[in-house]
Design a protein around this nucleic acid. Structure first.
Lengths: 191, 191
DNA sequence: GACATGACGATACAGGTGCAATGTAAAGTG
DNA sequence: CACTTTACATTGCACCTGTATCGTCATGTC
């Protein structure tokens, strides 16, 4: 065996370069050579770690969704169900520049995934998990009742929509938070 | 002056070919030659009507948003504000194949627009108009109160999110409608 | 030390890309 | 009639794309 390299880490730093490109020029600007140049390595190295471009894309997408998911979960301070859900959702929304970039990349991948559904199977599972979690919290708060699943789906759809509006600069960060809180108030009652 | 051609119509049929491609293979599959082939014309003709690819993309995007807008507006039968808003939103959601294709293209363009904001200015105006319209209907129904604008923004964000879920096949058409009706019930009360 | 294997770098290739240049036919105007 | 303008078609060019291939170290095992 020759010298051992942490291939996972190498792949992640290549995927990071990919994200920077996608954030700046969109997924069209992502090519093997561009990624290699952005990462400061040769195209051969990129090929070594990703045998095909699709493999690279899939890995980068899963990395981004993983990061968002773990970050959302780590933000769970021991609070009321309401604050817990609110914290989770606020973590998802692109309210600052790094998260803007992340969601930006996610959006590009979603458009990609709408054509190549195989790439989105992982994120589908993540989304399902989040919905049941939110539904559980709603039930724990004694709200939503039998329609907790429905209410959770609506809440998450609202957040997705707000994220879109934010990315397209159709509303300000404050507007998005206010709209979210308005909806939360209709679910949980006044704070 | 030589023979006159309805250039608007020609451009629209080229943009139609573009939409078919984008729906089938995504925006990456859209090139001048591909559009020409799909429309059954020469690449020179495409170049004649769109001096640059960006011009073609922008036109196609505006055409799609225009269609969605006019279709939504034309679906206004004289009913209650609630049914009026519901009809409008149901017209926006990708609930059948042609609308799936439309929203599919819109999604691709939104990802494109997040990088090139100039392309999204038109759609921003459309979105603003829809929000004030929905807010007016909420006020007419005597609901929402002082937060009619907030409630309208939330409702439209929810629909955007539901549209995304539908495109990614994360929920069924029935689920989306049920979630929408659930939210409408919380706004207007029981039907 | 022999040698297999992993980690790259360099290069080549076939094909696609946007765009520019050029040509040509037709229809209008004077 | 001449002449201009539009509406295309054809061709070519420089560039970029994903991928395959070959070469070269370096590092491990035996």
């Amino acid at each position: 065996m020759p010298r051992k390299v942490d291939s996972r880490e190498r792949r992640e730093q290549l995927a990071d370069a990919l994200m920077r490109l996608a954030g700046a020029r969109g997924l069209d600007g992502v090519s093997l050579r561009q990624v290699a140049a952005e990462a400061g390595v040769s195209t051969g190295m990129v090929q070594h770690y990703f045998r095909t471009k699709d493999e690279m894309m899939t890995f980068a997408f899963e990395m981004v969704t993983d990061r968002i998911r773990t970050r959302s979960q780590s933000a769970t301070a021991p609070e009321t169900p309401r604050e817990l859900v609110r914290g989770l959702l606020l973590e998802i929304l692109p309210l600052d520049e790094p998260r803007r970039l992340e969601n930006h990349v996610v959006l590009a991948f979603l458009a990609y995934a709408a054509v190549k559904p195989s790439i989105a199977t992982g994120s589908r599972k993540t989304a399902g998990g989040m919905r049941t979690f939110v539904a559980d919290q709603l039930r724990a708060a004694g709200t939503g009742g039998a329609d907790a699943e429905r209410a959770a789906a609506g809440l998450l759809a609202l957040v997705d929509g707000l994220g879109l509006q934010l990315l397209l600069r159709r509303c300000s960060e404050e507007d998005a938070i206010a709209t979210l809180d308005h909806h939360l108030a209709s679910l949980f009652g006044r704070p």
